[in-house]
Design a protein around this nucleic acid. Structure first.
Lengths: 288, 288
DNA sequence: CAAAAATATGTAGCTCAGCTACAATTTGGA
DNA sequence: TCCAAATTGTAGCTGAGCTACATATTTTTG
């Protein structure tokens, strides 16, 4: 996959090097890009009051193959959620706008995280988790929901899995780990002091450390296996939100990986659990 | 902002109603959509081995204005790899395959849920949450991670928010609710007996019931406000996974909505919380 | 300051893409 | 088997996008 650059941002960057009449084109497009994707060269040139070839030269200047190619790239850049000034949520937004932006941000993050994932590390993590005598999950603060989720997922395998969300208890728990155990840690930045201490203790006690965190963070350097979540550092209002969603997706992938390694027996167990749960809910109703 | 629909998904949906030669067009596009955005009608018709008007009729059949419009929409649907394919996980998959499928499923679900969201209900939910004297969050089993997340999010506003993950305590807590309180409930199917009882009790005690669940479920019928999460019922292996991610995205949107209603004061509080947390982690390091 | 050079912009016209009207073909039912 | 309806293809028209070149504008330099 090629590293696409948002076209509007590129226009903004290239603008100073453009000629006078091309600048007029750039300005109109930056001011109101959406209608442009349905215009012809003729209508756009009339709108900006320049000649048709000027439009074409503009397209070339910003790195497009021609006018259709330009429209295509512009259209892609306009897909909600990939705005060129990060469409931060604004005071006047209604719930349609907010929800769309939040969902789009989540979708984008999942897409970009997926592209950067280190699959070899995922493999290693799955092997370690699958063969662990005991899994201790460590998470603090906002990641604790992810930790809880991980615990519930891995509960379904017959590996003892414990969740620690309290930083003082975490260090104690880490000290009880042994060789053959796995410490599974979640952290956005990988810089939380308490969690780092816990990781050191766990490592000293012989456990393998699998962490889901940012590449190159302190936590990542302590860990044996790093599943990297490298979200954009654009400091959106919603960066933490989307990062957490990426963490959960990783939990899903890891759990699925372990399930596959366990083979058909694990699948059978799933079914049994599901069947049990069914008794606790009303049956699906006939259409009424 | 229009609620865009992923074109590939629409093609998939409409496919059964297409004519034979149009199906051939659909299949080729679904199999390899990316190159199509740079093709002309002529080259595409040659590729599929049908006539040019057939291509055009296909475009109209899937709701596009013409071929250029179709290419535009297709290009937008391909942004950031938003995939539409529902590929189930298979026994032989490696972590690359598993992770991609899980992420793609999550992206799809977010996309389709976003398209079906009832924004009016979201608005109502935000208003209720914002003016609540007290928010009690109820979640059971696999949704409890979502509940925890919601609690942590709303904690940041100065509304008392409590999380109940134990079904017997839930009913008790529900009985203590009063008019002006809000019961915020999460459930995938909206059919869990205990949760339904809790909802009835909460309703009887005068609280407003906001639930995030499936349209038309029993829980939905009890609630005052239903934020609908209608994920595809394709019974994927990973349906529960992706549904939960959609739930979390909804929590994000609701929390953001409340934050905006609260105005600048709430934003200030966020910053304060963030600043406090910063002391608990190592500073970002200079490149080393 | 003027004239030439270089650059920027517009005009005219060509080619081919996209579309429409209609003809040929296939399919389904009596 | 034949007719009607639906499906698919053919031929040709319109206009969109592009190129070559002419004109206008700016810059440079003697």
């Amino acid at each position: 996959m090629t590293a696409r650059v948002n076209l509007l941002r590129r226009i903004d960057e290239v603008r100073p090097q453009l000629r006078k009449s091309e600048k007029k084109v750039a300005d109109l497009i930056l001011a109101a890009p959406s209608p442009v994707i349905h215009m012809s060269i003729a209508s756009l040139s009339a709108e900006v009051d320049v000649s048709e070839p000027t439009i074409l030269r503009f397209c070339r200047a910003i790195g497009c193959d021609g006018f259709p190619d330009f429209k295509l790239k512009l259209a892609q850049s306009l897909v909600s959620g990939t705005p060129y000034v990060h469409a931060d949520i604004e005071a006047g937004d209604d719930m349609l706008g907010i929800t769309s932006k939040v969902f789009n941000a989540a979708i984008n993050t999942l897409g970009s995280v997926r592209e950067r994932i280190n699959f070899a590390a995922m493999e290693e993590a799955v092997v370690l988790l699958n063969s662990a005598n005991r899994i201790d999950v460590f998470a603090l603060g906002l990641t604790s929901a992810v930790g809880l989720d991980a615990q519930q997922k891995f509960l379904r395998f017959d590996i003892p899995v414990v969740l620690h969300m309290d930083s003082s208890l975490q260090t104690m728990a880490a000290a009880t780990l042994k060789s053959g155990d796995v410490a599974l840690m979640f952290s956005y930045h990988g810089q939380q002091k308490e969690l780092l201490r816990t990781a050191e203790v766990a490592k000293a006690s012989g456990a393998r450390i699998v962490c889901v965190t940012r590449t190159g963070s302190r936590l990542a350097r302590i860990a044996h296996v790093v599943v990297n979540i490298d979200t954009e550092e654009d400091t959106f209002i919603y960066a933490p939100m989307t990062t957490r969603i990426a963490h959960m997706a990783i939990v899903d992938a890891l759990a699925t990986g372990v399930a596959l390694q366990r083979g058909p027996a694990a699948v059978e167990r799933f079914k049994k659990i599901k069947a049990t749960l069914r008794h606790e809910q009303w049956p699906e109703e006939a259409a009424d």
